[in-house]
Design a protein around this nucleic acid. Structure first.
Lengths: 354, 354
DNA sequence: CCATAGCGTGAAAGCGGTTTCTCGGCGAGC
DNA sequence: GCTCGCCGAGAAACCGCTTTCACGCTATGG
């Protein structure tokens, strides 16, 4: 039997990590004080360049890198922010996260993700729990009540809100004007001659669903000959898929889905049932996620710039962290993206012209 | 002029955060030592229950919560892990991230995301940079050379590799058997009578693209009458969209795309050009992302369990962190998901039967 | 030639916890 | 009744780095 191996190698198969060297070791190695090492490492060193070189050499020799945790404690900042969302699985958050993370990285910050699993109670706990241990929060909490959010904010600062802009809130926000967005869409369908819409609602308590309803109501108020049905649905493709029968029964000539996922699900079921889009019925989505310009028929939707929104979120939060004035609220305007899933309404009553 | 307000309110509009109370304050408040407070907060306290109560009361009175950073320094662990990926924008990583994050949260860990922007050089830097300041890494670095990865590994431990299983690597890995996956798909198409495939390649240097090529080669070796063309493409829908002409020119009766995104892009262009799927040509994807069961025609693909993979990644990394034996490598087997975008080949040479 | 300003560097005090070690006080055993 | 041991709680060291403050040294001005 060779060597001292017995059962699990005491130096557990490659999983033992050599302890990182400390600033004190570097200092000793370079015959200077830890203070000097610190200064050199942070570029605050003024003085004999020979000393600086010695320190740098010692540092590379010992493979030294300052402990971020220790720095955080001493500096009082972690260079980390958290992104709190109801569901990371949602493509819209992913687009935001992607850009948020890249923008933050460009400024030397890292981002922590926290998923509240769509649970309003969890949202609050998670937010305050996550807040400790990072320098700021990008908070997307669509389910939380205004009341509770107001109470929570002071403990969360610096914090930037997503889609919760209200004068009541003492924090900057970035939001999407869903209300106007869906009005553009309604306008588009109305102009195509549609007079009977059906709206597939999103998650009941979500603020972005309410905005869409508000927009629809506003539009309905501006015209006299429009009826809008509502079908409770959800935010996933399956929700749209399962509502196909209800949509057909509604007799509407145009279906507006809460989002693209739901729209695609609906179109899928309609296709299976031999209903053709847009000839028999027009379908529209919301968000303009990357894939929907490639589905057949190409989906008419409302484009929401989630990527830029994520980048802007970082800009705002970064400013806040640097102690600058809270940035002004910004509202992103969605843009109508007409494609092939919407078409002029067939007039059900005037089959053969005047 | 009332008060001392001048210009910007010194207590900047709600952005000033009251300093959190420290353990020392709680100790003073409860007339005990910091040590005792620490013990009470961590449940290690044995002794007069009246003292414990006093401490707890003081803690809630002062709204005390221990500083995670200070704890991290003292304890030597951060309860944070990082997920390093080439592109968070990719739906497959998002599915993993979502489950990874939830699993980790269940064990009291948080996850940090780091996006290397598909840059191999960046991958290395980012990995070691991110590694400091957290307790472990889930690393997905498909572009990095075996050589470099080997060298990097010791500095990264504990680390769990995604899709980089090799005996050379001294770290556990979780991977997807893309090789077998695409063989199942090839088998399926071959059984449908297809004898001429075209494969839309993914990113050149990526290991998962190589695995698919290997699988294709292996399958081609098992039959004699199969020809497989290759078209360099990429991993985005646009890549598939733009290769439609090339696909048609190839004369192949079945197209295998690197992933679902590419497949959907391809189908979109084909539809626009009046080529019908699957009648004129069969198209297959890879990954089975949520949306593709809803596109028309429903996409035949290979289902990869990215969600469970993320959860498993946490299990493995957690074990490593707890100092347990490196878990065995695990390989997830993709499953063929036949849908409507593939159909029997039209025999180009035998128009009217035997 | 001496007082003084200025410069380079080190000693030490935090940052906010955890943990070991120590010590005083009390009950039990002889 | 005195010692031994145990138990409850505090003092202090420590985690690794930053930063203020102080100190000794050299150049300058009167």
């Amino acid at each position: 039997m060779s060597g001292d191996s017995w059962g699990p190698d005491p130096q557990a198969p490659g999983q033992r990590r050599q302890r990182a060297s400390t600033i004190a070791e570097v200092a000793r190695h370079a015959s200077v004080s830890p203070a000097t090492v610190s200064r050199v490492m942070n570029g605050r060193f003024v003085g004999d360049p020979e000393v600086a070189d010695r320190v740098r050499k010692a540092a590379t020799d010992l493979n030294y890198a300052p402990s971020p945790v220790a720095r955080s404690l001493a500096l009082g900042q972690t260079h980390t922010v958290a992104f709190v969302v109801p569901d990371i699985g949602n493509p819209t958050f992913q687009a935001m996260l992607s850009n948020l993370s890249k923008s933050a990285a460009a400024d030397g910050y890292r981002v922590l993700v926290a998923d509240s699993s769509e649970d309003p109670a969890e949202e609050a706990l998670l937010a305050v729990g996550t807040r400790r241990g990072c320098d700021g929060l990008v908070l997307c909490a669509p389910r939380m009540s205004d009341e509770q959010l107001s109470l929570l904010l002071p403990a969360l600062r610096p914090v930037l809100l997503i889609n919760r802009s209200s004068p009541r809130f003492d924090a900057p926000s970035i939001s999407v004007d869903y209300d106007m967005g869906i009005q553009h869409l309604a306008e588009h369908l109305y102009a195509l001659g549609h007079r009977h819409f059906v709206y597939l609602e999103g998650p009941e308590p979500s603020s972005s669903n309410r905005s869409r309803l508000d927009g629809l109501a506003a539009f309905a108020g501006r015209v006299t000959d429009l009826v809008i049905d509502r079908i409770p649905a959800g935010s996933a493709s399956a929700d749209g898929y399962e509502r196909a029968a209800a949509v057909r029964q509604s007799g509407a000539t145009a279906a507006l889905a809460y989002n693209d996922l739901v729209a695609v699900g609906l179109m899928s079921a309609l296709a299976e049932q031999g209903v053709s889009v847009p000839q028999d019925i027009s379908v529209a989505g919301f968000d303009d996620i990357p894939l929907v310009r490639y589905v057949t028929p190409r989906l008419t939707t409302v484009s929401v710039p989630y990527g830029p929104l994520g980048a802007q979120a970082w800009k705002g939060l970064h400013a806040l962290i640097k102690g600058e004035m809270p940035s002004h609220n910004v509202v992103f305007q969605p843009r109508l993206q007409p494609r092939d899933s919407t078409a002029p309404a067939r007039d059900r009553h005037a089959i053969c012209g005047p």
